[in-house]
């Protein structure tokens, strides 16, 4: 559907369709314990995105061929519910979901101390029940909160956010229109305490300068999102 030149995503004052400034993230909230039967869970609402992550395990890895003798494997499944988008998604095998599951697993494996649980698997289920844009980022972020909620030892949380380019302007945290009509998308997975990266993708077209700008927006947004994550984990105790 992309390539509609007549959709104006940003006005002359630098205000976007949803009223945000170009470096502003969409409103978000995170809640833990939303899947009562799981070992750990989190629900993240981010703009119109509504994403639930549940963690089960560690448990014995089945089938045997997926077992690692020296560490646990993260069995991540990213899935979009049939009613999560404007056009219904047919359930079942989907190449896009497989790819996102793989990169999500690899991002999270970089922080989880998998070596403590050899031959085990930790199941991470990411379910998108309502999608706007940036579901993979919301999925990674929610999954890292769910892992922490399950008491899985990890060296840091993972914050994921995407910036991109619309009408040649770099903007932070793309919404649906910006994602559809934009020219570039740069999702990153950031470790908030060190600023290191565990996940990086990009598609589109960015000049070196624009790339740097998008990168910096992501780093700035990560700080904001990290606060929401920590607050959810610490709950109402304070």
């Amino acid at each position: 559907m992309g390539g509609y030149g007549d959709v104006q995503c940003i006005d002359e004052n630098g205000i976007r369709l949803d009223g945000r400034k170009i470096d502003e993230v969409r409103p978000m909230s995170i809640e833990v314990g939303v899947v009562p039967v799981a070992d750990g869970s989190a629900r993240m609402k981010w703009g119109l995105n509504d994403v639930i992550a549940a963690v089960y395990g560690p448990m014995e890895a089945h089938p045997r061929k997926i077992q690692r003798q020296d560490r646990a494997v993260l069995d991540v499944r990213y899935n979009m519910a049939p009613f999560s988008t404007t056009d219904r998604i047919r359930p079942g095998f989907n190449r896009r979901s497989r790819e996102i599951s793989k990169v999500t697993a690899e991002a999270l494996e970089s922080v989880v101390l998998t070596e403590l649980y050899p031959r085990s698997k930790i199941r991470v289920e990411i379910e998108i029940i309502c999608a706007e844009a940036g579901t993979r980022c919301a999925g990674i972020t929610a999954a890292s909160v769910a892992l922490a909620h399950a008491g899985i030892p990890m060296t840091d949380l993972v914050v994921s956010v995407a910036s991109g380019k619309v009408h040649d302007v770099v903007v932070c945290d793309l919404n649906k229109e910006e994602d559809n009509y934009g020219e570039a998308d740069l999702p990153m997975g950031i470790l908030p305490n060190t600023g290191e990266l565990v996940f990086l993708q990009m598609d589109g077209d960015l000049s070196p300068q624009q790339f740097q700008e998008a990168w910096d927006y992501n780093m700035g947004a990560a700080k904001v999102i990290h606060e929401v994550m920590v607050e959810a984990l610490k709950g109402g105790d304070e």
């Binding site: 039967v37 119109l48 519910a81 009613f83 999560s84 988008t85 056009d87 309502c130 999608a131």
Partner: peptide, 22 residues
């Protein structure tokens, strides 16, 4: 569920389900 044309969420104890109409 904002993307569904009709939706409901039911919770009975710790059982939680969603239904979406397209």
């Amino acid at each position: 569920l904002p993307r569904a044309e009709g939706s409901a969420r039911v919770r009975m104890g710790d059982t939680i389900v969603f239904a979406g109409v397209k």
